[in-house]
Design a protein around this nucleic acid. Structure first.
Lengths: 338, 338
DNA sequence: CTGAAAGCGCTAACAT
DNA sequence: ATGTTAGCGCTTTCAG
């Protein structure tokens, strides 16, 4: 076995308690002893056993991300991983470990309760895909430190954070207006696509503020696939007044939009401006490269990490907020108009 | 605090030791006692404290994936996460937890040693991005259960697994020959791109076996970006004999290749067949959809998970092997030729 | 078959 | 300022 606290104590001619105090920076230890113990620890290449320490501490210095994984999520939802990287980053910085656990919503309540009660984890980051009323109640009763990523779509006590898509929509619209675009169309996901709808809300609120009139066909809803993006773009251009810019709710729609524009021989950005959201997966591949309003998922994760850590410290804390970092990444699909 | 083994013992009118034995299925406990204890555990909704158990056991039921994360890896390397999902899956099934830890290669040797010695983890899955000679030596000396993902590019004692890209190349070439294509060009990454080069090796070995002659310009190397793919495609078509099919080393090159073909008014698959590797990120977006040789990273992860678990059981075990699941996903960019 | 006792490695009162 | 003494919750001899 490796070196234990007792080995160090013996070698330093002191007690385990003293060594412990040195490690934990107790004020009541003389400089002399501190130095001596530290030196011995170095010499012996001593490293405290975290698990034993945690057992005594009753904390595990661990937070687990509970989500529903499966084949292809790596490709279909890279955002989640981008976020995890951010989480890992802040957690690591504070000496915490990140456990990834995949499960179905039904399993989550038992899992969370149990691993909290046995102190296998100090806190939980719950992906919206695993939450349920039961989970909410249990967590509320036991005051389990947690943070849900994604606003719950039902009434709950959960602490949560989410991307403020409405705000991102506002940023998009404002940006286009600033560029000098005077009429803007929106091709979005279906009306059930919350992300798209929130982005639209934001866009509309800004356009209204600036009294930008929009013909009916300037807003379109459809599946988030290129084909639909293509069709919706045609719709948007079908009226007698062509919009000066099109906002696409996501990259897939933008892809279709580009194709339609290309086929109609309408030049981007000379004849029309195009703006979308997110960097992934096409923004830099499309020609011309897409101007997008991007939300940095890494930062979001990092922020979420900080938040759980705070909640772990103060379990009574209640957080329900939008974390947003929408930034406009200016590229060639839009331009400044005089 | 939640119920402990002693609470159960008391309620069952027995000792903690007995309860422990019941939990661990010792043979020396009467059926009667076993039943009684089990019942009490149910009633009290008892769950053993894993961390305490592990402290006593000297095992943590944890494996950590050590890799280098950072901003944008979620997008740039979704394969890694796909693999992690697979790892998580098998680990969970066996009652293990997965910790994700990001660090630089320099930090890895200390981290691994320490977390192994303090039994914070039973085993390690090391991404090729964090390995080093020093790590190898230390791991070898201490016999630390591990598995490197990605064949080390230096001599080492490491256990490792990797994708057999050469084999994937063979699969690609064989498939095209089976389709009836008689001349095949390859547009690849740079000559430093191991993945691309191995795929090329595989392709060439099959073509040679079948005495398929290749003019010089049928093999091209360049950066894995669409623009280069475009240029390389032009090169490949510049000779007096046009290849019947083009294999692209990856999706980015395929994207450029499509564009070049489109601009030259060469129809896929009627005038030329195109095949690439991997599903990500364009295979299903391109028109016509890409035929690809795909490697299932989820399965690879699942398999790697199994392997570390075995190695944890038998630390002497030495594994150095390719895990491959290349499958041809037939789509519209190739066709059967009479 | 069962239980008492001694840890696992560290921390936390409480003395001194 | 330092050491003593109990634990943390579970496992594991080793008697009985």
């Amino acid at each position: 076995m490796s070196v234990t606290i007792r080995d160090v104590a013996k070698a330093a001619g002191t007690s385990a308690a003293t060594v412990s105090k040195v490690m934990n920076g107790s004020y009541s230890i003389s400089q002399e002893t501190t130095d001596r113990v530290n030196k011995v620890m170095e010499e012996l290449d001593y490293h405290p056993n975290l698990r034993a320490r945690n057992l005594a501490h009753k904390s595990s210095m661990t937070v687990v991300v509970v989500t529903t994984l499966g084949r292809n999520v790596g490709f279909q939802n890279p955002h989640m991983f981008e976020m995890m990287c951010g989480i890992e980053h802040t957690l690591s910085k504070k000496g915490y470990s990140l456990i990834i656990k995949s499960m179905m919503p039904e399993e989550a309540v038992d899992y969370v309760r149990q691993s909290f009660e046995t102190k296998s984890a100090d806190g939980f980051i719950l992906h919206a895909s695993v939450i349920s009323q039961e989970l909410d109640e249990m967590i509320y009763q036991k005051e389990i430190p947690h943070l849900v990523i994604g606003m719950p779509d039902f009434d709950s006590h959960f602490c949560w954070t989410d991307v403020d898509n409405k705000y991102a929509g506002e940023v998009a619209a404002k940006y286009l207006l600033t560029c000098g675009y005077c009429s803007v169309a929106y091709i979005g996901g279906t009306e059930k696509d919350h992300t798209s709808m929130h982005r639209l809300d934001g866009v509309v609120s800004i356009l209204n503020q600036h009294d930008v009139i929009r013909p009916k066909n300037y807003v379109q809803y459809g599946e988030s696939v290129p084909e639909t993006g293509y069709a919706m773009t045609e719709q948007v251009l079908s009226g007698d007044k062509r919009p000066e810019a099109i906002i696409c709710a996501n990259n897939y729609l933008a892809y279709g939009c580009y194709k339609a524009l290309h086929d109609l021989n309408i030049k981007i950005p000379d004849d029309i401006g195009v703006l979308s959201f997110d960097e992934y997966p096409f923004s830099q591949i499309l020609d011309p490269q897409l101007t997008v309003v991007n939300i940095d998922m890494y930062d979001l994760g990092a922020e979420a990490g900080k938040t759980v850590l705070q909640i772990i410290k103060k379990p009574k804390m209640h957080v329900q907020s939008y974390i947003t970092y929408p930034t406009v990444i200016e590229r060639s699909s839009t331009k400044k108009i005089q």
